[in-house]
Every structure is written in structure tokens, then in C-alpha cells.
Lab assay of single mutants.
Amino acid sequence: LTVEVTLDGRRIELHGLSEEAHEILRHALERNADDKEIKKILEELRK
């Protein structure tokens, strides 16, 4: 799955996400998580 997010003013596409990762990010974006929170989530998903 692919998600497009804006971090530090740049639009980035995240490819190859699992369903779980996609859901976690989608929920964070829906509640307008800040860049710091999104980065933390991405860091966790990379593990």
C-alpha cells in the first residue's frame, strides 16, 4: 500500500506499507498528528 504524507513541508510517498502500517498512519493523519508524531510512527514501523 502507498500513503502520501507531508513532512517538513515536503510531500513524500511511502510505498510497500503493510495493512497495519497503513491503518496506523491513516489514523494519525486523520487526527492531524504533527510532524514529530508522524516521524516517530515511521521510525517504529521501520523496525
Rank of each mutant, 00 (worst) to 15 (best):
T2S: 14
L25Y: 00
A33N: 04
K47T: 13
K36E: 14
A21N: 06
L1M: 13
L25H: 01
T6W: 08
I41M: 06
E19Q: 13
V5H: 02
V3W: 04
L1C: 05
L29Q: 06
L42Q: 01
E37M: 08
K40P: 01
I24N: 09
K40T: 12
E43Q: 11
E44I: 12
A33K: 04
R11T: 15
H15V: 12
K40R: 14
L25N: 01
A33F: 08
K39Q: 09
E30C: 08
I24Q: 11
L25I: 15
R10G: 08
E23N: 12
A28Q: 02
E30I: 07
E13M: 09
D35I: 09
K39F: 12
D8I: 01
H15P: 05
L45F: 10
A33Q: 04
R26C: 05
T6S: 10
I24C: 06
I41G: 00
E20T: 11
R26N: 13
E23C: 07
R31N: 14
L25M: 04
I38W: 04
E44N: 13
G16W: 11
E20F: 08
T6K: 06
I38N: 00
E13K: 08
D34T: 14
E37Y: 07
E30S: 07
E43H: 12
I41R: 01
K47W: 11
G16L: 06
N32C: 11
L29A: 06
I12R: 03
T2F: 09
K39P: 01
E13C: 08
L45D: 02
H22P: 01
R10C: 15
I12C: 10
E13G: 02
E23L: 10
S18P: 07
L14G: 02
R31G: 10
K47L: 15
E20D: 11
A33P: 07
L7W: 00
R26H: 08
H27I: 11
D35R: 04
L17D: 01
R46H: 13
R10E: 15
L25Q: 00
E19D: 12
E13D: 09
L45Q: 04
E37D: 07
A21T: 06
H22G: 10
I12W: 03
V5P: 03
S18C: 05
A28S: 03
E19K: 12
A21I: 09
R31D: 08
D8M: 00
E44D: 13
I24F: 04
H22R: 10
T2L: 05
E44S: 12
K40M: 13
H27C: 08
E37L: 08
K36Q: 13
D8S: 02
T2N: 07
R10T: 14
R26I: 15
K47N: 13
N32R: 10
D34C: 07
V5A: 02
T2G: 06
L7R: 04
I12F: 05
A21Y: 09
V3P: 04
L42I: 15
G9M: 01
K47D: 10
T6H: 13
L1W: 03
I38L: 13
K39R: 13
K39H: 13
L17S: 01
L45T: 03
E30G: 07
D35P: 09
K39S: 10
R10L: 15
E20G: 09
G9Y: 00
E19V: 13
S18R: 03
I38V: 07
H27F: 01
E20M: 10
H27R: 14
E23K: 11
A33T: 05
E20V: 10
I24K: 14
E43P: 00
H27P: 04
R46I: 15
L1N: 08
R26G: 05
E30D: 12
E20Y: 12
E20R: 10
I38G: 00
L45I: 15
H22T: 12
L29S: 03
A21K: 03
E13Q: 11
A21H: 10
R11H: 09
I12A: 03
T2Y: 07
L7P: 04
E23T: 08
L7M: 08
L42H: 01
H22F: 15
R26D: 05
L45N: 03
L1T: 08
N32T: 06
A28M: 07
E37Q: 07
I38C: 02
R11S: 08
H22L: 14
E43T: 08
V5Y: 00
A21Q: 14
N32I: 06
L7C: 14
H22Y: 15
R31P: 02
E19F: 13
L7I: 15
E13Y: 05
K40I: 10
L7Q: 04
E43W: 02
E13R: 08
L1G: 08
H15A: 09
L17P: 00
L42G: 00
I38H: 00
K40L: 13
L17M: 07
L1E: 06
R10H: 15
E4M: 05
E43D: 12
T2M: 09
L17C: 09
R10I: 15
G16Q: 06
E44W: 10
A33Y: 08
E44V: 08
E23A: 12
E20L: 10
A21F: 12
H22W: 15
D35M: 08
D35K: 05
H27M: 10
L17W: 04
V3N: 03
R10Q: 15
A28K: 00
E13S: 10
V3D: 03
E44C: 07
R46Y: 12
R26P: 00
L7D: 03
K47F: 12
L42N: 00
E43V: 09
G16N: 14
R31H: 14
E43C: 10
L25W: 00
L7T: 05
I12E: 06
D35W: 09
H22V: 15
G9W: 00
K39E: 09
H15D: 09
H27V: 14
G9C: 04
E4V: 15
L25A: 00
K36H: 14
K40C: 07
H15M: 07
D35Q: 11
G16Y: 07
L25C: 03
I41E: 00
T2D: 05
I38F: 05
H27G: 15
D8P: 04
R46F: 15
L42V: 10
R46T: 14
L14C: 05
H15Y: 06
N32P: 04
E4I: 14
H27D: 15
E37V: 09
L29G: 03
L17K: 00
D34G: 11
S18Y: 03
R46M: 15
K40S: 12
V5C: 05
E23S: 11
E30K: 04
G16A: 05
T6F: 06
D34M: 07
A33M: 07
I12M: 08
A21D: 13
G9T: 03
L17R: 00
K36D: 14
R31L: 11
I41Q: 01
L1D: 05
V5M: 03
L29D: 03
K36S: 14
K40H: 11
E4R: 02
D8N: 07
L45A: 05
D35L: 07
V3H: 05
K47P: 11
L1V: 11
A28L: 09
V3Q: 05
V5S: 02
S18E: 04
D34Y: 04
I41Y: 02
S18H: 04
G16K: 04
R46W: 15
E19A: 10
L29H: 03
N32Q: 12
L42M: 08
H27Q: 14
I12K: 02
E44G: 11
H15E: 10
I41A: 01
L14M: 06
L29N: 04
D8H: 04
K40D: 11
S18A: 04
K39M: 15
S18W: 06
I41T: 02
L25T: 00
R46N: 14
D8A: 05
E30H: 06
E23D: 11
G16R: 04
E44Q: 14
A28T: 02
H15G: 09
E4K: 06
I12Y: 05
E30W: 01
A33C: 07
R31I: 12
L29Y: 03
E13P: 02
H15F: 08
L45E: 01
I24M: 13
H22I: 14
K40Q: 12
I12N: 02
L14Y: 04
V3L: 15
A21W: 15
K40V: 10
D35Y: 10
E43Y: 02
T6P: 03
K39W: 12
E4H: 06
E37C: 06
I38Q: 00
D8Q: 06
H27S: 15
L29W: 04
D35T: 10
K40Y: 07
D35E: 15
I38D: 00
T6Y: 03
R10S: 11
E19N: 12
E30F: 02
V5K: 01
K39V: 10
E37F: 07
V3K: 03
R26W: 02
K36W: 13
D35A: 11
L29P: 00
A21S: 08
I24H: 11
E43G: 10
A28P: 00
L25F: 02
T6Q: 11
E4Y: 02
V5I: 15
K47M: 14
E23G: 10
R46E: 13
A28Y: 05
D35V: 11
L45P: 00
I41L: 11
T2Q: 06
G9H: 02
A33E: 05
L45V: 08
R26V: 11
E30Q: 11
T2W: 09
L17Q: 01
R26S: 12
A21G: 08
L29T: 06
E44T: 12
S18L: 04
T2R: 08
L45C: 09
A33G: 04
V5W: 00
R10W: 06
D34W: 03
E20Q: 12
G9S: 03
D34I: 06
A28H: 04
E44R: 11
D8T: 01
E4C: 13
E23Q: 10
R11W: 08
N32A: 13
L14E: 02
V5G: 03
G16V: 05
H15Q: 09
L17G: 01
E43K: 09
E37T: 09
V5D: 03
T2A: 07
K36M: 14
K39D: 06
T2P: 05
E4W: 02
E19W: 12
D8G: 09
R26K: 11
E23H: 12
G16S: 06
